[in-house]
Amino acid sequence: MNTSHASCAASVLAAEAVVKRFGAHTVLNGVDLALGTGQSTCIIGPSGSGKTTLLRCMALLEAPSDGRVVMEGATVSQARPSSDVRLAARKVRPEIGMVFQQFNLWPHMTVLGNIIEAPMRVRGVSRDEAVVTAERLLQKVGMEAKRDAYPARLSGGQQQRVAIARALAMQPKILLFDEPTSALDPELRREVLQVMRTLALEGMTMLVVTHEMGFARRVASHVVFMDEGMIVEHGTPAAFFERPTTERAKRFLNQFDE
C-alpha cells in the first residue's frame, strides 16, 4: 500500500487503494494519496506513470476500478457506487476545481462570461454577485484588462490564467491542475506558475501534476513521485530532491542534471 503523507481521516480529499484498469491494462495499482488542508502537493514522474489518471479519479472524472475516493470523510467515488455515494459525489463536485492542460474555455463566451457561467448555473449566484467575484479574480490573475475579450484573442498563458480564475469562481475547497503549463512556451509558463505560486502562499489546497521541477521544489509542501501506476516515493521537496531514497527516483532526477 502506497500510503501518502496526510492521514485519510484528516484530509480534504483522498484516494484509498485506488486501482484503475483500462481493459487488461492496469494504470493505477493500489494508490493511497491524502491531501491535507492548505497543502500544495505536486505529482511528478515519467510519462505513462499514471499521474493524470490519478488526478482524474480524484477529480471524479474517472471512476476507480477498485478502491475509493473520499472527501472530508465521505465516499464520493468507487467502482460500483451506491445511491448514497452518487448523491455525495453530486454534492461535492462543485468543491473540486479543475484546471486542464488545454484551457477548455468556451470560445463563444467572453472572459467574463466564462467565469460567471458556472457560479450562476451551479451555485445559484446572482449575475451581479458573480460579476463582482469575477472582476476580483481577474485582477488577481492579472487579466482584468481582458474582461470582454474572447478566448481566441488571448495567448495560451492568458487563457490558462482565465481558466484558473474560472475554477476559483466556484470557491472550491481544492484545486487540481493537470500539467497546466505543458502547452505553453517558457515566458507564458512563468505567468501561470506565478499565479499558482500566489495561490499556494495564500493556503489554497492544490494537487498539481507537473513536469516543472523548479516549481515542485520551490512551491510544493509535498512531492509525490509515481512510476508504473504506484507511488514510489513521497516527502518534502527538500528531502525528495536532495536525498531521494529509491533508485528509481534517483534515475528520474538524474536526467534533469544532465
Results as ranks from 00 to 15, higher is better:
158 Q>E: 15
121 R>S: 10
134 A>W: 01
157 G>N: 03
174 I>S: 06
153 R>H: 14
179 E>I: 08
124 G>L: 12
122 V>C: 09
148 D>A: 14
153 R>V: 03
125 V>L: 13
147 R>P: 03
119 P>W: 01
118 A>H: 07
173 K>G: 15
171 Q>F: 00
150 Y>T: 05
172 P>A: 04
152 A>S: 09
177 F>R: 12
175 L>Q: 00
141 V>L: 04
173 K>D: 13
166 R>G: 01
123 R>A: 15
140 K>L: 14
149 A>E: 12
172 P>M: 02
116 I>L: 11
142 G>W: 06
172 P>L: 04
125 V>W: 06
149 A>L: 07
165 A>F: 04
176 L>K: 05
155 S>G: 01
170 M>Y: 02
127 R>Q: 15
122 V>Q: 12
124 G>P: 15
175 L>E: 02
127 R>C: 06
113 G>A: 01
164 I>E: 08
128 D>N: 13
168 L>D: 05
139 Q>V: 00
124 G>Y: 10
131 V>N: 06
164 I>V: 14
149 A>K: 09
113 G>T: 14
181 T>F: 10
165 A>R: 03
169 A>L: 01
159 Q>D: 05
135 E>W: 08
134 A>D: 12
136 R>D: 15
126 S>R: 07
124 G>E: 07
149 A>W: 08
125 V>T: 15
159 Q>P: 06
142 G>S: 10
146 K>L: 09
148 D>T: 11
173 K>C: 00
127 R>V: 03
125 V>A: 11
157 G>S: 05
115 I>M: 10
115 I>S: 12
114 N>F: 13
164 I>H: 13
171 Q>S: 13
178 D>Y: 08
172 P>R: 02
159 Q>Y: 03
175 L>A: 03
176 L>H: 04
130 A>W: 11
167 A>E: 04
124 G>Q: 12
168 L>F: 11
176 L>Q: 04
116 I>H: 00
133 T>N: 14
137 L>S: 05
161 R>W: 01
130 A>N: 04
127 R>H: 05
124 G>V: 10
162 V>I: 15
163 A>V: 02
164 I>W: 12
121 R>I: 13
135 E>A: 08
132 V>K: 13
113 G>K: 14
131 V>D: 00
176 L>I: 12
164 I>K: 03
141 V>I: 10
175 L>W: 00
149 A>V: 05
152 A>L: 09
165 A>T: 03
134 A>I: 10
